[in-house]
Design a protein around this nucleic acid. Structure first.
Lengths: 106, 106
DNA sequence: GGACCATCCGCGCAGTCGCGCAGGTATCGT
DNA sequence: ACGATACCTGCGCGACTGCGCGGATGGTCC
């Protein structure tokens, strides 16, 4: 062991931590469905709750975590709050894992 | 709500579950570092423990979960057990999130 | 102003995770 | 067979997570 492979170094701890943290946001089926739905375009909390088949409260909490992680953006319009996915890495990862999106071809 | 967007359907529950399960394997910094090191080539448990800066027992447990999830393969050579990453999706996702690997060009 | 709706927040519970510890298994050298 | 090495596995503890519940907040309409 302890070979010191030339030209190989572990990424910095902060970056690894950031990646693991982002992946943790994708480790819940409800969040995956939320983000998948958001790949089709912006949507509100109640609409997302219908789409993913979860309670609005749970969806709101998931969106709160996703927002704190910087994976989604929110925009208020009257009583509704519309969320969007801006991070291109999330788009690529989800499309690669779930098969390419049928509606985001344009 | 309940708009019934044409041409859009949620992926099947099993597939979403599978993706979330795979992502959960990438949600731990130690596992991310293990897989990143394995992208450079196969390695043994003790060597990985040195590379990622974790106890061999913890690394072995992580590798066990990764093996059960089908993300890594193992090959025994004497008393050593060498692990490899075969899943191309894992390679792509990690390289996309951590920056392209410098040593996996071949 | 009051009624109402969509959303957010704090609390609590059950389930899961990571990891250290101790004991077991596989393989090689003598 | 015996010991040494490298690894795996079951158990327990502390910490975290998802979610339901009740209450608070921001906004619209009458």
């Amino acid at each position: 062991m302890h070979e010191s492979i030339p030209g190989f170094a572990m990424p910095p701890e902060d970056e690894v931590r950031r990646v693991a943290d982002a992946m943790r946001m994708l480790s819940d089926p409800t969040r995956v469905k939320i983000l998948w739905a958001l790949l089709q375009g912006e949507s509100s909390v109640a609409c997302l709750a219908e789409l993913v088949g979860a309670a609005p409260t749970a969806v709101s909490q998931h969106l709160s975590k996703l927002r704190l992680s910087g994976l989604v953006e929110n925009r208020r319009e009257g009583t509704f709050v519309y969320y969007t996915v801006e991070d291109p890495a999330v788009r690529d990862v989800l499309q690669r894992m779930l098969g390419r999106s049928p509606a985001t071809a344009g």
